[in-house]
């Protein structure tokens, strides 16, 4: 079973960390990834850019209708906003996809992630994945 670990952190606090301390934190994250790999639990990881560089696309107004089996918004306008829609203390900043037996095991892995020390980690089962074919 695959699980998505969504790592949240206060990105302003993160940006204020001196480079040497940040390098040490990254060493911890890299060790964590190696441990996942060794245990055959690693699938992928990504670090995300700051939310100030993000865009949120949102249909404003209108209503959702099912027209001949397709979902169509009628009367709304697509709008793009800067940043994520919701203001939150912690932002979604990175992810791991891991392979493990069950949710208990996924929580155990999440607890080992150094990021658990500074922000919440949301753990979600992945029910289906499609990926681009490897070249």
């Amino acid at each position: 079973m695959r699980y998505l670990l969504m790592l949240y952190a206060d990105e302003n606090a993160g940006a204020a960390i001196p480079p040497d301390q940040m390098a040490k934190a990254m060493e911890g994250m890299f060790a964590y990834q190696q441990a996942l790999e060794k245990a055959g639990a690693f699938v992928s990881t990504s670090a995300l850019g700051r939310t100030s560089d993000a865009r949120t696309l949102r249909m404003s107004g209108g209503e959702i209708h099912n027209v001949d089996g397709a979902f169509v918004n009628q009367g709304g306008t697509l709008k793009v906003e800067e940043g994520p829609y919701a203001e939150a203390r912690e932002q979604f900043g990175g992810l791991f996809v891991i392979e493990c037996e069950d949710m208990d095991a996924a929580v155990k892995w999440a607890a080992r992630c150094p990021a658990a020390q500074w922000g919440p980690i949301e753990i979600r089962p992945i029910v289906h994945t499609s990926s681009a074919k490897e070249a």
Binding site: G28, F30, A31, Y32, Q33, Q34, A35, K38, R112, P114
Partner: peptide
């Protein structure tokens, strides 16, 4: 180096992780 890195990566307690590092 490899074994200590894996031990770090498997630690839940940051004090242990720091000591291993």
């Amino acid at each position: 180096h490899e074994a200590l890195t894996l031990a770090m990566g498997l630690s839940t307690d940051p004090a242990i992780r720091n000591w291993l590092e």
